[in-house]
């Protein structure tokens, strides 16, 4: 299963990069989100895969008695997801705003607009 996840991580990165290189801002954001997902999955995978044993101490016990999933990557990814949301929403609003002002979705047309705004 790990191998399959590795393949998916590769796919997510490749797809994200490809979309990032497009001229349309919309596609760029899609790329950004794909890359984010890939990175999250990558970090998560580094904590190894453990089935059915979340890092939650059972009631009545004070320490883990069974194996448990690594909590550190989970905490990292959780933070990354939320921050990623902030970034994505900002990017989404940005393209909308740019479109409102300049009436274009094409990144290359943004090169010489300093004086227009």
């Amino acid at each position: 299963m790990e191998i399959l996840l590795v393949v998916i991580i590769g796919f997510l990165h490749a797809g994200g990069l490809y979309m990032l290189l497009r001229r349309s801002m919309f596609k760029m954001i899609i790329g950004l989100i794909l890359l984010g997902n890939g990175a999250n999955l990558l970090i998560f995978l580094l904590g190894r895969l453990v089935k059915g044993n979340p890092p939650v101490i059972e009631d009545g016990l004070k320490v883990f008695t069974d194996i448990y999933a690594d909590p550190v990557p989970q905490a990292l990814v959780l933070t990354a997801i939320v921050i990623g949301f902030g970034l994505q929403s900002f990017a989404i609003i940005l393209i909308k705003r740019v479109y409102n002002v300049l009436n274009t979705d094409d990144l290359d047309e943004l090169n010489s607009t300093d004086e227009e705004i």
């Binding site: 998560f44 895969l49 089935k51 979340p54 448990y68 939320v82 990623g84 994505q88 989404i92």
Partner: peptide, 27 residues
């Protein structure tokens, strides 16, 4: 793979992102 917290967060965020996209990009 035993990450219920992540799953919940990812689920909510995903919902929000898709809604946001829909709101903005229709136009």
């Amino acid at each position: 793979y035993s990450a219920p917290d992540l799953a919940m967060t990812q689920f909510s965020i995903d919902t929000l992102t898709v809604l946001l996209f829909m709101l903005v990009l229709v136009k």
